[in-house]
Write a protein that binds this DNA or RNA. Structure first.
Lengths: 216, 216, 216, 216
DNA sequence: GATGAATGAGTGTTCATTCAT
DNA sequence: AATGAATGAACACTCATTCAT
C-alpha cells in the first residue's frame, strides 16, 4: 500500500496530467518524472510498472462504483414480481434503477477529472475494459427481466443479445453524460431523460410487437 | 489511386493483421514489412505514412456508409409533418430510420473484419473520431425532431443534450451489433429490437411526462 | 553532354530550388523529382549522381571565371618591373587586378542566383572547395610579388602565409559582395573600395615596418 | 552542468572524432556510440540531442572569445578622438585591436582542434553562424569609425558595406590563421602582418582618394 | 527516354525498465 | 527512500541509388 509521501503525490499529480494529455499508451514515464522533479527510479520504487501507476489513479473510484452497483443488483434481485411490474409500468417515479444511476453519476462528478481519465484515456492499460466489466455485472439481472418479459409478451422475436445491450447502453448513457456535460445539475436533467429513455426502450422491445398481437 | 500489385496486397494483408492484433498505435510498421517479406522503403513507396496505410484499409467502407447516411438524412428532411407523425406513432413498421440502419449493418457485415478494425482499433489514427462524425451528421435532424416533440408535449423538462445522445446511441447500437454478434441474420434480429428500442426510448422521453401532465 | 529536353529543364529548375533552400547535403533528390513531376529514374538517366546534378548547375559559371582569372594572371606575369612599381604606388587608377575583379563580379551578377548557389550551398559536394581552387590559382603570382617586395623593403618579418592569405582574401571580398549586396551598381562601389583596401593592405604589410626603418 | 564521468568522456571523445571526420550533418550518432562502446540511450541521458552534443564541445571556447571581444569593444568605445587619431596613424605599435586579435588567436591555439571543429565543421548545427555573430559584435564600432573617417576625408565615395566587410574580414583573417597555420608562433607572425594589412587597408579606402583630392 | 517498383542501410530519437549505490 | 546511470530494443521515416521493362 502506498503511503502519501511528497514524492508519491508529485508523481501522481504529473502522471495524471500526462495520461490526461496523451492517453495511456502515448504517455511517457520519462516526462512524468521530469515534470515531477523525480528520477524514474523513484517512480519504480512506488509503482510496479506503467499500468500500476495508471490504475492507482482510478482504482478507488472504480471500486466504489463497483460496490455501489453490486449492492443495487443484489437488492433488485430480491424484488418480487409485483415490484417488478410496478417498476415496469413507470408508476414508480424514482425506480431503483434510476437511483443507482444517479448515485454513480454523483460519484463520477465528485471526481470528474478522474472519471474522464478512466473513461476516455485508459486504452492500452488493464483498465481499458472497465466498462465491459460494469456492463457484465448488471447483465445477469436484465437477463432475468427479459425472461419474465417474454412470458408477459410472448410471440415476439427477441434477440438473445438484448439484455447485454441494455446493460451496456445504460453504462454508455452515463459515460455520455460525464464526457459531454460539464455541470452536474445539467447532467441530472439528462439522466432523468435517460432513465425514461431506457425504460421506454426496454418496454418497446416487447410492447411494440404487442400492438399488433395480443397486448396484456 | 493505388494499383493492386502483389506487393501492395501483401503489405495490406499484413498491415491488417498487425493493426487488428495490436491496435493502430502499438502496431509496428517493421513487423508489417517483415511479415510481408518487403522492405520498409517499399511500404513508403505506396503509402505516405502509418496513418495513410491504416486509412487505406477502411476508407472505402467509411465513405460508402457516409454517403448512405447522407442520402437518408436528406430524404427525411423533406418528409412532411404527417409522415413524421406516422413514423412517431409506430404505425409504419419499417421506417426510413430502420431501413438505413439495416443498410449500414449490411455494408458492415459484408466486410466485417474491416468494420471491426475501424470501430475498435483506430485510436491514435485520423479515423479515431469516425463515430463522432457519423453521429454529428445525424444530430441536426434529431434536433429538429426534438423541437417538434416539444410542441406536442410541452411542460416536460428536456435536456438539450438529448438529440445528440440519441444520434450517438443509434451509432452505438450498430457498433454493438458488429462487435458482439457474429452472424448477420442474428444481427438483423437484434437490429429489429434496436429500432423498437430507439423509437420507444425517444417517445418515452416526452410521453412519460405526458402521462402525468396533459397528453396530446 | 546533356541536351535541353523538357524533362532535363524541369529537373534542373527544381534541383536549383531545392539546393538553394536546403543546401547540398540536406537536399533530397526525391523532393526534386516530385516537384519536377518526374521519376527518380529519369533523373538518373541524365545525371550520374547527386553531385553531378549539383555541379551541372554551376559548372559553366565556374569555368568562365576560371578562364578569366587564368588569362589575367598570365598577362600579369609578363609585366615588367616598371609596371609593377607603378601599380604598387597606385598611380594607375584602374589596375589589371581591379579590372579582373570587376569582370568576375559582372559574371557573378549576370547569374547571381547561381553564384549564390555555388558560393553558399555547395558544402558536401565536389564544388565545396571551389574558392580554394580559385585562390590557389592566383597565389603563385602574389608569391612572386612578395619576393620582389621583400627586396624593396628588407628587414621586416613577413609570414610565408601572406601571399596565400592575400589571394584568399581577394576572393573573400568578391564573395562578400555577391552575398551581401543586391544591386550590381552598389557592388561596384564596394569593389572600388575593396581594391583600394587590398592595395593599401598589401603595401602596409611591408611599408609599415619601413616607417620605422629605412624607407625606399 | 555535466559531470565528467567516464561515459561522458568517451562519448565526447568519439563525438569529436566523428564530427571532425564527417562534419556535423553527416556525422552519425550511432557511430559515435559504437566507437565509444556505449548505447544510444546513454548518449541521450547526457545530451538532449545531436546539436547539444556538438555545442557542448565548443561552447566554452565560443563564450570565452565572446567575452573577450565584448570587453575589448567596450574599452575602445570609450577612447577619445586623440587616441583614435593616434591609432589611425599607426604611431601606436600595438593597438588595442591588435591585442584582442592576439588574445583570440591564443585562445584558439590553446585548443586548436576544437577551434577547427567550430570553424570548419559546424554547418547544420546551431553554431553555424558563430562567425556572423562575432562579426556583428564588432561592426557597430567600425561604423562609428567610418563616420569619423568620412569627416577627415570628405568627397570620397564610400560603400555603406565597408564597415561590415571590415569586421567580417578581421574574423576571416583569424580563421585563416587557425585553419592554415599549425604552430602558434608562426601564426603570431602572420597576425602581426594581418594587423598591418587591416590598418593599411582601412586607411587606404579613404586616403587613396585623398591623394587626388585635398589631403588632410 | 522514362517509368514504377524496390532496395537496404541509414537517420535521430524515445521507450519502459533495471540496478548498484 | 531515492538517485544517477545505463540498457537495448524499438520507433516512424528518409536516403541515394538501381533496374527490368
Amino acid at each position: 500500500m502506498e503511503r502519501d509521501t511528497d514524492t508519491i503525490l508529485k508523481i501522481r499529480r504529473e502522471a495524471f496530467r500526462e495520461f490526461m494529455e496523451k492517453g495511456y499508451t502515448n504517455a511517457s514515464l520519462r516526462s512524468i518524472c521530469k515534470e515531477a522533479g523525480v528520477t524514474t527510479g523513484a517512480l519504480y520504487f512506488f509503482f510496479k510498472d506503467k499500468d500500476e501507476l495508471f490504475s492507482s489513479l482510478v482504482k478507488e473510484m472504480v471500486e466504489e462504483i463497483y460496490v455501489m452497483m453490486m449492492q443495487h443488483y443484489s437488492l433488485e434481485c430480491e424484488m418480487e414480481d409485483s415490484g417488478f411490474q410496478a417498476a415496469l409500468e413507470g408508476e414508480l417515479e424514482d425506480t431503483e434503477d434510476e437511483k443507482v444511476i444517479r448515485n454513480v453519476i454523483h460519484v463520477l462528478y465528485q471526481n470528474r477529472e478522474k472519471a474522464l481519465l478512466l473513461l476516455t484515456k485508459a486504452q492500452g492499460s488493464s483498465m481499458e475494459d472497465v466498462l465491459d466489466r460494469f456492463a457484465q455485472a448488471s447483465e445477469v439481472q436484465y437477463r432475468n427481466m427479459a425472461a419474465r418479459m417474454k412470458k408477459l409478451y410472448p410471440g415476439r422475436e427477441i434477440s438473445p443479445y438484448v439484455p447485454n445491450w441494455f446493460a451496456h447502453d445504460q453504462i454508455e448513457g452515463i459515460v455520455y453524460a460525464i464526457t459531454h456535460i460539464d455541470r452536474e445539475e445539467e447532467a441530472l436533467v439528462f439522466v432523468g431523460n435517460l432513465a425514461a429513455y431506457l425504460r421506454g426502450g426496454w418496454k418497446a422491445i416487447w410492447a411494440e410487437a404487442g400492438d399488433k398481437g395480443s397486448s396484456p
